[in-house]
Each structure stands twice: as structure tokens, then as C-alpha cells.
């Protein structure tokens, strides 16, 4: 219990209260994150209602197979970080640290796959303002789709990058036995952040990759 009392800030009655306050703060932050991405999704909705055909055409230019694999990778990584937290809660250390490294590796592989996607879009001339070689009546409004695509996926990748660094820091701390079955709040909050990154992608996937695929 010594680590627990050493970690207890003086404004809290006990560790449970401190932990709940930290989690509440994290959930409040996650709400602001949801609204941050929500603005981009709202902009997407407005533009898609106005130009449905251009959004379907734009979506058909994205790589559906790679998008599906990226989604599976993020879902799996979410499960891995949840299992890492579980292991620490049960008093584990090594397995948890390796699960965190696995989560970070999956996040990194997501970023690499996205890098390949961006590169092939550059080669196809699908980046408005930098290299955009599309022709035809839908080429104009399709730029809106691609602008939103780069903003949404770009900010999401930024979050994945921050998450990877955070997870590696947590893996190091877990390995060094900074957490125990009594105290694991930073790890829990990092896991919550990673799950939010996953949830954002759960909505990015159908809105970017799955439009206009039928027929």
C-alpha cells in the first residue's frame, strides 16, 4: 500500500476518489476530442448532402482493402491495450508491458499503411492544391471530399502518433513496476485515449472508404 499512499494527492480522501476524479477529467477531455472530430464530420455531412455523386466517386478512389485492414488493426490494438490494463490490475507486469508494446506496434503499422495510401494518392494526383490531376464534371466537388479526407485522416493519424508515444512510455513504466494492482491510473487513462482514437476511426472507415462501392 506504500505506493498507493505516496501517489495520493492531499485533496483526495482516498485512492478510489482520486482515481474517479482522474477518469472524469479524461472523459471530459475525450468529449472535447469527440467534438473536435465532430466538426469535421459535420462539415463532411454538409458537403456530402450537397455533392453525393462526387463523394461516391472520391470514395471509390480510396483503397478499401487497406482501409479495412487498418480498421482491423486498430480494433485489435484496442483489445490489446484493454488486456494490458487487465493484466496490471491482476498484478502482472511483463505480459502487460509486452501487450503495450504490441499495441504501439499495431498503431505504428497503421501509420505506415496510411503513409502508403497517401503516397499512392499523390501518384494518382488526388491531393488538391499539391497534385490534383482529375478531370470531368465531378473533379471540382471531389476536391471537397479529398480536402476533408486529408484533414480527418491527418488529424486522426496525429492522434495515433501521440498515442503510440504515450503507449511506449506506459510500456516502459509498466516494465519498471511503476504500476501495481493498487495504482494504475496513468495506464488506464492512456488506454481510454487509445480507445477514443479507435472509435474515431470506426466512423472514419464507412464515411471515407465505403461510399458508393455498390454497383
Amino acid at each position: 500500500m506504500s505506493t498507493e499512499s505516496a501517489m495520493l494527492a492531499q485533496q483526495f480522501d482516498d485512492a478510489a476518489q482520486q482515481r474517479e476524479a482522474s477518469a472524469l477529467g479524461m472523459w471530459t477531455f475525450l468529449a472535447t476530442e469527440a467534438l473536435f472530430f465532430g466538426v469535421l464530420f459535420a462539415g463532411y455531412t454538409v458537403c456530402r448532402v450537397r455533392f453525393p455523386a462526387a463523394f461516391a466517386a472520391g470514395s471509390r478512389h480510396t483503397d478499401m482493402l487497406l482501409g479495412t485492414i487498418e480498421t482491423a488493426v486498430l480494433l485489435t490494438s484496442s483489445c490489446a491495450v484493454a488486456l494490458a490494463l487487465r493484466d496490471v490490475q491482476l498484478g502482472g507486469r511483463r505480459v502487460a508491458a509486452w501487450l503495450l508494446v504490441l499495441t504501439a506496434a499495431l498503431g505504428l503499422s497503421f501509420l505506415v499503411m496510411h503513409g502508403f495510401e497517401y503516397y499512392s494518392e499523390y501518384r494518382e494526383g488526388l491531393i488538391p492544391g499539391i497534385r490534383y490531376t482529375q478531370q470531368g464534371p465531378l473533379a471540382g466537388p471531389m476536391q471537397l471530399f479529398f480536402c476533408l479526407y486529408y484533414f480527418i485522416t491527418g488529424f486522426h493519424s496525429l492522434h495515433v502518433g501521440i498515442g503510440v508515444i504515450l503507449l511506449l512510455v506506459m510500456a516502459r513504466r509498466t516494465w519498471r513496476a511503476r504500476f501495481s494492482a493498487q495504482y494504475y491510473t496513468p495506464l488506464e487513462l492512456s488506454a481510454l485515449y487509445w480507445h477514443l482514437v479507435d472509435i474515431v476511426w470506426i466512423f472514419v472507415y464507412p464515411l471515407i472508404y465505403l461510399v458508393g462501392r455498390a454497383g
Partner: peptide
């Protein structure tokens, strides 16, 4: 000070 940080045992 004896209150544990876990409110319930973690899911399986």
C-alpha cells in the same frame, strides 16, 4: 486509506 482503486474485478 484501505479502499482499493478497483471498484470491481477486471473483465475476463
Amino acid at each position: 486509506m484501505n479502499a482499493p482503486t478497483t471498484s470491481a474485478s477486471p473483465p475476463s
